[in-house]
Design a protein around this nucleic acid. Structure first.
Lengths: 150, 150
DNA sequence: CCTTGATCTGAAGTGCGCTTGAGAAATTAC
DNA sequence: GTAATTTCTCAAGCGCACTTCAGATCAAGG
């Protein structure tokens, strides 16, 4: 049972166990500025307790659709030794809510267009509402957004 | 002005001009089973008019969030020489609508959870509703789903 | 002390949807 | 007939979020 003294900090495996993340993911996040652990004499990473919260924040923000670069942007404004406070979270989460609302609105517009298209079947590049650019952003993104079929 | 006889079929550049797609994208789609053009004596691809419609369908389906593999799946059920009919489109688009509805519902649930979290700020891995697995699918996908900030 | 197990680094691989580039051959415009 | 344009193939690169692997070092339990 790994039970390091608090003074030594947490090992990466402990942090992985507590957050449910893979060790490799935590290291990856470090290269992207989410965390900045100190090293012990042997070169191993040692984490503060506040890092659990940084990762919690990152995981929550990812579920809300933020790319890692943005998450890192929010986190680098905070002192590395300080955990995310309630005030931080409230401030940030209000922004996120606006983003979700916009996505819902875009999807709803898309659905309405599709309703108009069912039974039409024209798919005309000139006339079909589906090609209208204003909804193009709704579903794009680096990769496909899977329809939930599970 | 490239104006090939209909008997020769369309060149890839013509198809690109008519659909707005890049030539490279059309070739890429071919490798993924969306199209299967014939070749002329010199080895150049020649497309039928119905291929414009196949690409239109693919573009519309992509806006609805389908990955290329699924689009190819729908298209390979149809004879290569036949264009997408209205009946095809109606059948398929009803499925797609259900998928969009599900995505909207998932995002709405996520938003409601976030509302419960604003002002709470706990981000507790045990208790926070944001970590509840049933919404995890809503935003995952190969890459991040950008919040629309444009 | 010694053996497990955890951790280290850096490079490469994955999946999706493409684009870019090189070098050659075909086609078209004049 | 020649020059300009298009097309050809194949390989590699990109962006995102990671994982996997190899080979070496470090830490901890008995």
């Amino acid at each position: 049972m790994p039970r390091p003294l608090p003074s030594q900090g947490l090992a990466i495996g402990d942090l992985a166990a507590r957050t449910g993340l893979a060790v490799s993911a935590i290291r990856f996040y470090e290269t992207h500025g989410i965390l900045a652990p100190v090293r012990n004499a042997g070169g191993h990473r040692r984490y503060a307790r506040s890092d659990i919260r940084r990762l919690s924040f990152a995981m929550a923000a990812q579920k809300l659709g933020l790319p890692l670069a943005e998450i890192a942007g929010h986190l680098k404004d905070l002192p590395p030794d300080r955990a995310i406070s309630q005030a931080d979270w409230t401030r940030i989460s209000r922004d996120l809510r606006a983003g979700i609302d916009a996505r819902i609105a875009a999807l709803t517009r898309l659905r309405d267009k599709l309703d108009g298209c069912i039974g039409c079947g024209c798919l005309s590049l000139d006339r079909c509402a589906l090609y209208n650019p204003d909804d193009a952003r709704a579903d794009e993104g680096p990769g496909p957004v899977l329809l939930e079929r599970d």
